[in-house]
């Protein structure tokens, strides 16, 4: 006979499972709680991350600042103070290095650790856009660099007898270089298959920003100069260095900052995609 009982149906569920009472579907679906819009969610993440950074990251900000000031003091012996390109490169490179330390290195570590430990589940089960989590954290880390960059830039200007009148450009350099480096850092942290690799990439990125940013480009061999062009922090360094000169070329400063903004947008978009991929498997 061709009659099949439910019991003998292929892939029949285990006994207890069959006892479970089925619930009617489709009819009368419950109302969904509202989705949280980008800006309020971003604000909440930003606020939480900034407070977290304040408590846990202040010692690291000191390290970042002292590292940069230390490099400037060290190079003071070989670089002549005054409006030469070497002095400008050293001060601008050291200032942007603080951004690289926090936004690239620490953010890569943060997201790497969060991803490895399952911490992303917390955000992934809340109705927030992925971009809010990534941008909120990136913005908090970038904001956190502000005091360190200011202290480094002012100290460097005094140390190398450079004018401080152009330092207002930091208002644009910090957020844009911050966005570029934080985007790269977040993407590294979220894409690295293991947290140790995220840490390693963050450290290497920061080392690259140190070597290629602080040393004047004229002194670098050809291949390193290309590598320098590929590094997003370079454009922040160039923009800041230009404003130490007597007559800054504002068009090229704007162009450099535009590159930072573009890299930032790309990096943050990549990081958002990586977050979405890491959160739901």
């Amino acid at each position: 006979m061709s009659t099949l009982s439910a019991e003998s149906a292929p892939g029949a569920a285990p006994r207890a499972a069959r006892d479970a009472v089925p619930v009617p579907r489709g009819d009368g679906a419950a109302e969904l709680a509202p989705r949280v819009r980008l800006w309020p969610a971003l604000g909440a993440v930003y606020r939480a991350q900034l407070s977290r950074a304040r408590v846990a990251r202040i010692p690291l900000l000191f390290v970042a600042t002292f590292q940069s000031i230390g490099i400037m003091v060290l190079l003071r012996g070989v670089v002549t103070p005054g409006p030469g390109p070497e002095a400008q490169a050293v001060v601008a490179g050291s200032s942007v290095l603080v951004v690289a330390f926090v936004a690239l290195n620490l953010l890569a570590q943060h997201f790497g650790a969060l991803r490895a430990s399952g911490g992303l589940d917390h955000y992934a089960t809340l109705p927030v856009p992925p971009a809010a989590v990534v941008l909120g954290a990136a913005a908090a880390y970038a904001s956190f660099t502000v005091p360190g960059v200011l202290v480094t830039a002012v100290t460097g200007s005094l140390l190398y007898s450079l004018p401080v009148t152009g330092l207002w450009v930091l208002l644009a350099v910090i957020p844009l270089a911050g966005a570029a480096l934080a985007g790269v850092g977040a993407a590294l942290g979220l894409l690295a298959p293991r947290p140790e690799l995220a840490t390693l990439c963050g450290q290497l990125g920061m080392s690259a920003a140190l070597l290629l940013g602080v040393l004047p480009p004229q002194a670098l061999p050809e291949p390193l100069r290309w590598a320098r062009e590929l590094l997003p922090s370079t454009y922040g360094v160039e923009a800041l260095a230009a404003t130490f000169g007597p007559a800054p070329a504002w068009a090229s400063v704007a162009l450099d900052l535009g590159v930072c903004a573009a890299v930032g947008a790309l990096g943050l978009a990549l990081a958002t995609w990586a977050y979405r991929r890491a959160a739901v498997r």
Partner: peptide, 17 residues
């Protein structure tokens, strides 16, 4: 995320808050 609240085993996202 709009229907349920989830408590996972990990708290690393919140540990420093």
């Amino acid at each position: 995320a709009r229907l349920l609240a989830y408590l996972g085993q990990e708290s690393t996202a919140l540990d420093e808050l």
